[in-house]
Write a protein that binds this DNA or RNA. Structure first.
Length: 428
RNA sequence: GGAAAGAUGGCGGAGCUUGGUUGAACGCGCACGACUCGAAAUCGUGUGAGCCCCUAAGACGGGCUCCGUGGGUUCGAAUCCCACUCUUUCCGCCA
């Protein structure tokens, strides 16, 4: 959520910033509501002050034995006026709030505008592997090795689902354990959150109300606000852990990570090139989150980016880091860098991690603050998140980049200890 | 799933029977000050959040709202009524 104060005082700046994200806004109406609300509120408060004053005098008058009935009559009318005005104020506030909740975050100043085509590759690590044989794509490799069972996944649950089998399951689990160990080593707290979350979590993370149709809702309450959904990423849980709390300054920066499956509808995003496990309805991810003081969130950002990159690097994969243009950052984020791993069969780099800084956008939505020692006042924290990493993009990269002429796949060095020392995955 | 009790400020805990001067006694914690060479102890003062007005700005200037959440009754509600949520205990069920 954006700061209404900023919109009031520096309207054009906000308009321009959102324009950079490809979002055209007109604040005229909002500012008008804001004015109306302000005026209305002032007048109601004056009425309430009057009521409070008179109410305080009634016991005294009663004690003196003076008549109070005529006062009651007048107060009743005043009360009705207050009720009516309160309603009007509430309506205006509702409209203002809905308007603000629908706005995306402002991109940081240094981002270029425009969409994906303006993304900038800022780092390239490793080299594209070359083969002296005809390389296979990850779908064929995994099926041939019997480590992923797509057909039976579809049988069990429909398109977009698969089974990890045997060494495939062990490879998946090895990756997760590798990531978890690395984060623990770096001092991050391991969290296993619920996979079913309430509406407020989606709202706080910035996914709702706009993207409420992109998650799986559970049966139950008709009203979504009372219902639960399957989390689309652990970020949705982690970013809400301290909602409506005032954190102690000494807690910051707070570094968390979680492993969860991610459940996504991904409606209408099928593309023929995205075969296999590139885009499914359920995939595993380890997610990192930091809560930081505003002045320190860039440091946190660099750390998260460095951590995500180091995981890919330790796996020995060729990848690149892209700084996303404003329009390619998701709605909640002020800044996003993607780590994209090379998928030989597709001839493209595919995102395995997205590292973002939301600044105070999420904290304003879910009211997460810390007490600033300098001013003694509560202040919104900055929230940052980064995948570390999503396995469903890493496995295709591993099997393709590590494939051998005979169709076997060499296990990256760092994963072997999690797989009982197995060095090569071969056909059974 | 059934029954009972409960939900108050950073924490503990009054107030609710008998609605009014209670944003909330008291204690703890914390902050500042005094005392001290310094500390402890002691004493004093203060100590939630949000919004609004005033102001160049700030305030130890004024106002409004918040005692789980949402409604209701009333001139007036932490206090009465209703619904919901959650917590604890007991019973049932169960990996």
């Amino acid at each position: 959520m954006l700061d209404l104060n900023l919109i009031r005082n520096d309207t054009q700046k906000v308009v321009d910033a959102l324009q950079k994200k490809g979002h055209t806004v007109d604040f005229t109406e909002l500012l008008q509501w804001d004015q109306e609300r302000k005026a209305k509120k002032q007048s109601v408060e004056a009425l309430k002050a009057e009521r409070n004053k008179v109410s305080g005098e009634i016991p005294k008058l009663k004690k003196q034995g003076q008549p109070v009935d005529h006062i009651f009559q007048a107060m009743r009318e005043l009360g009705d006026k207050i009720t009516e005005s309160d309603k009007e104020v509430a309506e205006l506030e509702g409209k203002i709030n809905d308007f603000l909740l629908a706005l995306p975050n402002m991109p940081d100043d240094d981002l270029v505008g425009g969409e994906k085509e303006n993304n900038e590759v800022i780092k390239l690590v490793g080299e594209k592997p070359s083969y002296d044989f005809t390389p296979k794509n990850h779908v064929d490799l995994c099926v041939d090795l019997g480590i992923i069972d797509y057909e039976r996944g579809v049988k069990l649950s429909g398109g977009g689902f698969w089974l990890y089998r045997g060494l495939g399951a062990r490879l998946e689990w090895a990756l997760l354990n590798f990531f978890i160990d690395e984060h623990i080593k770096d001092g991050y707290e391991f969290i296993l959150p619920p996979h079913q979350l309430g509406y407020n979590c989606g709202l706080g993370a910035g996914q709702f109300p706009k993207f409420a149709d992109e998650v799986y809702w559970l049966e139950g309450e008709e009203d979504r606000k009372k219902n639960r959904f399957m989390l689309p990423t652990a970020e949705t849980a982690l970013v809400n852990v301290y909602a409506n709390e005032i954190m102690d300054e000494s807690m910051l920066p707070l570094k968390l990570f979680a492993y969860t499956p991610c459940y996504r509808k991904e409606a209408g995003s099928y593309r023929s090139e995205e075969r296999g496990m590139i885009r499914g309805h359920q995939f595993n991810k380890v997610e990192m989150v930091q809560y930081a003081k505003p002045g320190e969130s860039m440091v946190a950002f660099e750390e998260l980016l460095g951590k995500a990159a180091s995981l890919v690097e330790k796996l020995g994969l060729h990848f690149r880091v892209s700084k996303l243009a404003a329009g390619d950052c998701s709605a909640s984020m002020a800044r996003t860098y993607d780590i994209e791993v090379w998928i030989p069969s597709m001839g493209i780099y595919k995102e395995v991690s997205s590292v973002s800084n939301a600044n105070d956008y999420q904290a304003r939505r879910n009211n997460t603050r810390y007490r600033d020692s300098a001013t003694g006042k509560p202040q919104y924290v900055h929230t940052l998140n980064g995948s570390g990493l999503a396995t469903s993009r890493v496995i295709p990269a591993i099997v393709e980049q590590y494939q051998n002429a005979d169709g076997s796949v060499t296990v990256p060095e760092v994963l072997r200890k999690y797989m009982g020392g197995i060095e090569v995955i071969t056909k059974k």
